[in-house]
């Protein structure tokens, strides 16, 4: 089976996110002062081949833990979607 993983990697709350802070600051220039606390992370999408959704989940989790996110500075979450049969 082929699955698609949609992964979100975000800077940890405890860590200053200078990109998000700069974007937050620009909101008042857009006359949208009600928008604040912008935090910017990454979205990663990948395909994985696995016998079951559970195995696909394990593989993606391993990839996140080892490479795609650094637990010292980032958190991650993902969703596994079954690819439609062609």
């Amino acid at each position: 089976m082929k699955y698609t993983a949609e992964i979100n990697v975000m800077p940890l709350k405890a860590i200053l996110d200078p990109q998000g802070k700069a974007v937050s600051g620009s909101m008042k220039n857009l006359h949208l002062p009600e928008i604040h606390d912008v935090r910017i992370g990454k979205h990663i999408s990948l395909e994985v081949e696995a016998a079951t959704k559970e195995i696909a989940t394990q593989k993606v989790d391993e990839a996140c833990r080892k490479l795609l996110a650094n637990p010292i500075m980032e958190s991650y979450e993902f969703e596994i979607l079954e690819n439609a049969a062609v």
Binding site: I15, L16, P18, Q19, A22, N70, I72, M73
Partner: peptide
Amino acid sequence: LCEAGLLPGALLHNTNH
């Protein structure tokens, strides 16, 4: 070395980006 776990901590974007 930090990414490899041989040294503690991590290097973030400079605060002024």
